[in-house]
Design a protein around this nucleic acid. Structure first.
Lengths: 223, 223
DNA sequence: TCAGTTAAGCGTGCAGCGTACGCCTACGAA
DNA sequence: TTCGTAGGCGTACGCTGCACGCTTAACTGA
């Protein structure tokens, strides 16, 4: 077994992430990554079948830093009856916010997230954690599926909405300057939205979803 | 003023959509669109500054077919007290489902939606309609901003989640076959999810969001 | 009727992309 | 020391978006 491998997948992913963070998504080319690794372009292909796999590696690498442990993040240690509490809401908020914090540190990865999410082991680990919380909160299987996919859609959707058109940005300003006759509600609301922070927006939307989920939980318990 | 224009933006967008529907996103090139229009490649640039604008045109064209009128879609005509009813929930569901129906007929446009949504006039018209419903339901400005952006995130997020990894697809099957020791909840829930339809998933998630919104509306009225 | 003018239409060419192919060579086993 | 394997990479190809500048169609004013 001659000539041992000189690179690992995490090393390649880290190099790709460095390029992405430094120069943006457009600059993320096979040549640039190879250059970052001090290699010839085609050498990278010894470790990666194509560009798609490199992107998948990159996404998984970013998500690998998300802590999925929520064992001890509940509200104090005073609860004795399992399942009936609302700790699960805090737990899910924690898991979601951790993803957002991690991704927020590498915003250029956002366009790649949805395309490669389903091939990422660490994304699965996160999903397993979310579903675990939902299960221990008493949701049945069908409810868990709907809730999980809705959370997935919201989190990644919100990240992209924020990435492509942040609320306190030029997009909102343009909407605020719109003709109030043509777009009365949009122009009006946009003026109000200019001083709203991205965290308030994200957290508020997440809380809407969790509030709906909590209503389902209460209805289920009433049976 | 010689040599009148032979093409309109809608014609170009329609040609691009034909290419997209027939051959997919990868095949959507400037050459292909020009070919569809029986033109030389560079002729298209007389009408469009670059590829990005062509994509924006395409997105706006697709969204232009979404009916944003909800004046007469309420539950019968029996309500007399304005604002207090729950017709607004039906109205928003209608508006959201119309987007989904339209986009569902051209799924290959989904990856382009979020990137160009904010430049589309018809997207603004839709947004104005949604915000109008929220306003007449009694939500104040900050609530409208949060609710609107959350709906935006959910709708486009869900479309993409569904596009890249539909629930009744190979992704779910792969998850169901996962090692139950490593991913107990994921493997378990995936097995349950295989026979759930995409509409049930989408509608269920939307209802969670609307349920949370309704709770806010009730709390606001209690004041 | 017929220049004159303006913009439509497009052929050519270029830089940069992903990557197929095949050569050279560093390395570990025999 | 020799051999076989696999790492490393130079070259080249097809494809992309698009800059540039030519040709030419269509309308206007004399």
């Amino acid at each position: 077994m001659p000539r041992p491998r000189s690179l690992t997948h995490p090393q390649i992913a880290a190099a790709a992430l460095r390029v992405l963070d430094r120069d943006g998504l457009d600059a993320l080319t096979m040549r640039a990554v190879a250059n970052e690794l001090d290699m010839g372009t085609m050498s990278v292909y010894r470790y990666v079948t194509d560009r798609a796999q490199l992107e998948a590696l990159l996404v998984d690498h970013v998500l690998s830093t998300v802590d999925t442990d929520v064992a001890d993040t509940g509200t104090a240690g005073t609860h004795t009856n399992a399942g009936a509490g609302t700790d699960w809401i805090t737990h899910i908020e924690t898991l979601v916010n951790r993803v957002r914090a991690t991704v927020g540190a590498h915003t250029a990865v956002i366009p790649l997230l949805l395309t490669h999410r389903h091939t990422s082991r660490h994304s699965m680990r996160w999903g397993d954690a979310v579903l675990g919380v939902l299960a221990s909160a008493g949701f049945d299987a069908r409810q868990r599926v709907v809730a999980f996919r809705a959370l997935l859609a919201y989190v990644f959707g919100a990240l992209q909405v924020e990435y492509y058109g942040p609320l306190p940005g030029p997009g909102t300003a343009a909407l605020a300057a719109l003709d109030p006759d043509q777009f009365p509600h949009l122009a009006d609301t946009a003026r109000e939205a200019r001083d709203m922070g991205v965290d308030e927006e994200f957290g508020g939307g997440l809380r809407l979803l969790l509030s709906g989920l909590a209503a389902d939980a209460r209805a289920g318990q009433a049976d």
